[in-house]
Amino acid sequence: MTLLSVSGLQKSFGGVVAARDVEFTVARGEMLAVIGPNGAGKSTVFNMVGGQLRPDRGRVLLDGHDITHASPQKRFRRGVGRTFQVAQTFLSMSAAENIQMALISCRRQSGGLWSPARERHREKAVQLLARVGMAEAADVPCSALAYGDVKRVELAIALAGEPKLLLMDEPTAGMAPRERTELMDLTASIADTQGIGVLFTEHDMDVVFGHAARVLVLLRGRIIAAGAPDEIRRNEEVKRAYLGDEHALERPKGARPA
């Protein structure tokens, strides 16, 4: 059931090695978190999977297809959807049009010169918005939405491509704590029902330990630990890596819904 398989990934900038021998897999329906202190190489790894960076060495396989050197556009067609650390939506369009745009692109209709875009795939778009709880806001310009809502729209855009793998770069950055949980619960339920593999990076340990099935810890470009959240929390090397922030790995206070 392996969806994404990354092996021997390596990348250096000038003399600085940002990622070294990175290997991991993501299964369908699985949520895998990548954590690590600042500068550990999270973004580098993430962008090599997303297609924004070319690895120096190693392979990235999606569903058995080699996508190591594919452009972001090709990866999208292979089933990779993603969200960005700072939400990237089309601010000049309404929420529904954002989704419609993704649907249009997905069906390779973006070269259409004649019939209006706003009439295409409208129903499907509203359905997708409904799934992230944004159906009411379908006709609201994206520029007028609260940031938390923009993040939801962005998730719906990513889902419009019917992805097999969802990449989420710091999905909850810039959101209020309650919004964070809601968004990640939503993501988890979608991933679960549709069998989408989710790879995400995150600073908020509540989010990581509350939602990830497995956690990958990066330090100076290397994976120093990988496993279930509880194993990671006990791992001495990980604790040392987070030295100076001893409470970072403590179990979140209060119960949380599973």
Partner: peptide, 15 residues
Amino acid sequence: RAARDSEARAEAIGL
């Protein structure tokens, strides 16, 4: 317009 608003997003949806 999509490419104007956000190049990263436009690429990520395959444009």
